[in-house]
Simulated scan of single mutants.
Amino acid sequence: MSRSFGRSLNAVAYTCLFAALVSVAAFQFSRPSAVLWPAMVAIVPMLVLLYLSARTRDTLYSVAYLVVGAACTYWFVLTFYSQSPPILESDALSLALPKIALVMVGGSAPHIVPRLAWCTAGYLAAELSAGAAMVVAGQRWEFFLTTFLAYAVTAIIFIVGSLSRRSSRRTQPMLHRAARDEQLAAMRHRIEVKAASLLHDTVLSHLAAIAGSVGDSLDPHLRNLVQRDLEILVGEEWLTEPEPVVDPALRHRWEQTPLFGAIAESRLLGLDIESTGDFDAISELDAETSVSLGLAVKQCLVNVLRHSGLTRAEVAVFGSESDVSVMVIDAGRGFTEAETAPDRLGIRHSVRQRIEEVGGAVQIWSTPGRGTSIMIRVPARSSERSSEVDAS
């Protein structure tokens, strides 16, 4: 903004100087007997120094423009008032043109105080040089309102522009802080949702494992699963959910996916699960989506074991270019989602909200006494790549 404002002042100065040249030519044409060429010559050094000052933004050229401009203004005014009769005694605007150009020397300064100082120096130099020329020509010195108004308007623009920039500088950090607070709130919400879902899943699975155990001790494999879940809850690994390190040769195998792990763990809890469909479609999911899908399906299977009154369920996998769908089906008691108690977080947090966090969707069909079908749909990586290609 500083440079653009300086260029605007330089443009005003150029306009005034060229207008002064046109004015001299017009007066010379109207009075051929007058000798006005010295006034035209006086404008040329001002044009040259104004160009150098605007191009280099060097203080030396600004000082030269101020000093030489004052001398040129003196010569310009003296040339006209030396004519007989004086030409400009009734034309304040033409006389003010080189003086206004001298006031615009403030365009080369970078800050408000130097700009005001340069403009004030330019105004005083213009008025003193013009007044001296009038006195030397035998004329009475007069105060010209046109030059003063140009100086006053320029100073006001300087002050208003500086105040507006300071206000914007104060406002910008507030906007940055608001955006940062919004990001932190969103991150905190995601962590809270993830923590609530993970805690709910873990506690419910452990209770189901303990309830289904035979004898006084748990199955060793179940004991290891419980121990692993407790370590995850105590540690911080659940915050990032890093992608499991898998042998690249086995990366896309069905047995390596979180969904397969969820089915296997549910079978250990005593649930008879029939799994069908396109298992290779799971390899089209990224790590975060695959983990979220596995945890959501695991919660669905635990709900079957705990609430359906049956120990049998079906998991069907469907894949397409745009998404991967998993349906969990049981023929148990069924339920009405709208009548679910507010403190029941399984479907709400561990399934629906978890899937929505990765851009998926959940549909539930359930009728009391006739079973439940839950369709979980998540986007595949191939759809994300095609969307990026379309956007590019």
Score class of each variant (00 low, 15 high):
residue 297 V to C: 06
residue 5 F to C: 00
residue 233 L to V: 04
residue 319 G to N: 00
residue 191 I to G: 01
residue 113 V to E: 00
residue 346 G to C: 00
residue 304 V to S: 01
residue 48 V to G: 04
residue 228 R to C: 02
residue 378 V to L: 09
residue 38 P to A: 07
residue 30 S to N: 10
residue 360 G to Q: 01
residue 341 A to P: 00
residue 23 S to A: 15
residue 78 L to F: 15
residue 93 L to F: 14
residue 390 D to H: 12
residue 312 R to I: 01
residue 324 V to I: 11
residue 76 F to E: 10
residue 49 L to N: 03
residue 251 R to K: 09
residue 234 V to W: 07
residue 68 V to G: 06
residue 61 Y to K: 06
residue 266 S to N: 12
residue 25 A to S: 12
residue 94 S to M: 07
residue 350 S to T: 12
residue 16 C to D: 05
residue 26 A to W: 09
residue 152 A to V: 12
residue 111 H to T: 10
residue 146 T to F: 08
residue 369 G to H: 03
residue 58 D to S: 15
residue 355 I to V: 13
residue 164 S to D: 09
residue 341 A to V: 08
residue 55 R to P: 00
residue 252 H to N: 15
residue 373 S to T: 13
residue 214 V to M: 11
residue 336 T to F: 04
residue 289 T to P: 03
residue 16 C to W: 00
residue 284 E to D: 15
residue 377 R to Q: 13
residue 229 D to P: 00
residue 22 V to C: 11
residue 308 S to E: 00
residue 83 Q to E: 15
residue 369 G to S: 03
residue 352 R to P: 00
residue 270 G to V: 10
residue 111 H to V: 01
residue 321 E to M: 02
residue 247 D to H: 10
residue 194 K to Y: 08
residue 205 S to E: 00
residue 136 V to Y: 08
residue 197 S to T: 05
residue 284 E to Q: 15
residue 179 A to Y: 11
residue 371 G to W: 05
residue 374 I to W: 03
residue 170 R to S: 09
residue 243 E to W: 06
residue 262 A to K: 00
residue 391 A to N: 08
residue 382 S to R: 04
residue 370 R to S: 10
residue 211 A to D: 15
residue 230 L to W: 12
residue 142 E to V: 15
residue 18 F to N: 07
residue 103 V to H: 04
residue 22 V to L: 14
residue 186 A to N: 12
residue 204 L to G: 06
residue 266 S to F: 09
residue 59 T to V: 15
residue 79 T to K: 00
residue 348 R to G: 07
residue 165 R to C: 03
residue 286 D to W: 05
residue 120 T to G: 11
residue 205 S to A: 13
residue 242 P to N: 03
residue 346 G to D: 10
residue 247 D to L: 12
residue 104 M to P: 00
residue 2 S to H: 11
residue 222 L to N: 03
residue 324 V to T: 10
residue 359 G to T: 01
residue 263 I to Q: 12
residue 126 A to R: 02
residue 311 T to Q: 13
residue 105 V to A: 11
residue 236 E to W: 04
residue 346 G to F: 08
residue 130 A to R: 08
residue 379 P to D: 14
residue 309 G to S: 06
residue 70 A to Q: 06
residue 280 D to H: 11
residue 41 V to Y: 05
residue 154 T to H: 12
residue 287 A to G: 15
residue 132 A to L: 15
residue 317 V to R: 00
residue 217 S to G: 04
residue 120 T to Y: 14
residue 330 D to G: 01
residue 185 A to P: 03
residue 253 R to K: 07
residue 71 A to S: 08
residue 267 R to H: 09
residue 108 S to T: 15
residue 182 E to Q: 12
residue 71 A to W: 01
residue 87 I to S: 06
residue 161 G to V: 02
residue 17 L to Q: 01
residue 316 A to K: 08
residue 309 G to W: 08
residue 185 A to V: 05
residue 250 L to I: 02
residue 184 L to I: 07
residue 348 R to H: 11
residue 179 A to H: 12
residue 87 I to E: 00
residue 277 G to R: 02
residue 366 S to A: 06
residue 297 V to Q: 01
residue 331 A to I: 03
residue 43 I to G: 06
residue 366 S to M: 08
residue 10 N to E: 07
residue 48 V to C: 10
residue 306 R to T: 14
residue 81 Y to S: 08
residue 199 L to H: 14
residue 150 A to G: 12
residue 28 Q to Y: 04
residue 361 A to I: 02
residue 69 G to L: 06
